[in-house]
Design a protein around this nucleic acid. Structure first.
Lengths: 120, 120
DNA sequence: CAGAATCCAGCTAGATACTG
DNA sequence: CAGTATCTAGCTGGATTCTG
């Protein structure tokens, strides 16, 4: 490995049960969290666009995922006071920084998935 | 972003519901999958060492996580026929490749978690 | 030591219906 | 359009017990 992860275990309680690292890791690597973030990595999307971009997500899970990521300062929500309602979602600076770190993983999965799961 | 993810959406059904990408993504970003992989990134570990390294994991989830990653060709299991039993787990070449792609994310989470979740 | 098997509480998440 | 509210099936995953 180019980047050693042993440094993470060196500082005491990184990734131990109940610490902030675990919480954030669960948020950003959650089933729908990853896909919402990947969708927003290309730019701002509206609620309805997100629903279509993240194939298979329910409204409930989209709402809950967006709220979590918004609380974490990773996603920004901008509601325009018009009729009909118009709400834009985008990555914050922190979110864009996160996606730079997550991109290699996503690209690896996209490149290797077919070898790993032959028929689905 | 340095690496654009839009290329992923360009090739048709990447990350659409039910496709291999989703399956593999779920495996490697699963709650315990990430932590097991991070633990093995530093080298070979035995079952009991893994249990201690991955704080909070139950035997059931460790077994199930390892089986999934083994089926995916990411983790290798080597059982030594001795009494008492001795079983080593390590990353395969594919697994090490995966961890190179996942390291930036883990380092990002470790570096930013405390800013995101102030008090847990 | 390294698991497998069983039981079950609780959360996840889908479906549906409703609202500003 | 952009959500919220409610209900619930079923899966996740913890605790416990047992075994080669």
């Amino acid at each position: 490995m180019t980047v050693s992860l042993s440094s993470l275990r060196g500082d005491g309680d990184a990734f131990t049960d109940g610490c902030p690292t675990r919480v954030v890791l669960d948020h950003v690597t959650s089933k729908w969290g990853v896909l919402v973030l990947a969708a927003l990595a290309d730019g701002t999307l509206r609620w309805s666009e997100l629903r279509r971009a993240v194939d298979g997500i329910s409204e409930k899970m989209l709402a809950s995922t967006l709220k979590t990521l918004e609380r974490d300062g990773i996603v920004e929500r901008v509601a325009h006071p018009v009729i009909p309602p118009h709400v834009d979602y985008s990555l914050t600076d922190r979110g864009r920084d996160l996606m730079e770190a997550m991109s290699p993983l996503l690209l690896w999965v996209a490149a290797n998935a077919d070898d790993i799961v032959p028929s689905g």
